[in-house]
Amino acid sequence: MSEIRHHIPDDLLAAYAGGNLSYAFSMVVAAHVSMCVECRAQLSSHETVGGALLDDGDTPSISQAMRQSVFARLDEPVPVPQSPRRMGVFPGPVAQALGYEDPHWRRIGGSVRQTLLHRSDKDSVRLLYIPAGQAVPDHGHNGLELTLVLQGAFSDETGQFGVGDVEVADDSLEHTPVASPGTPCICLAATDARLRFNAVVPRLLQPVLGI
């Protein structure tokens, strides 16, 4: 696998660890982390922060009945839900969302095809299939868009993206991704209308924190 150059931004990893991302963005983060050692390590760092805060947290009392019921159930054979498994080019969390079946592709313009995995009024996540050399049809989005390459590569005004790379685009970016020649490009693309990068607060804190 070629070197991954475009990673999940750290604040998105922190938001995922804290449970503050939509389903659509969580899917992209979980898929990328399944492919990227660096972001997996970074995510476990955030989980370590969560754990440290948990250790320091409140300690309300626990019912003895619940405690007893846990200990009574230790020897019961409990089916542990299987963790997600990769299927072909699809990382585990994507394969799981597909029910471990091949995607049902639908044409969305030209010969580009998509499979919708989830859509709500605020977020959506889909697979895109872009034949080599073809452009993704115009796709305006509100808020942030994350695009993770699963097969092939694409390029747009901002650069080239290969397998494992994530493009983070906000709604100010007018871009026309074009699949690179050779292999058809398969991407996982998610939008979240509520999320925007707002650099103001971090910038305010920079002098204080000495970043």
Binding site: D11, G18, G19, H46, G50, P202, L209
Partner: peptide, 20 residues
Amino acid sequence: AYLGDLSHSELQGLTGLPLG
């Protein structure tokens, strides 16, 4: 950010986290 209320899940932006 790490222990907060998830019942609204209305994170309005990725701001204010003094990660630095």
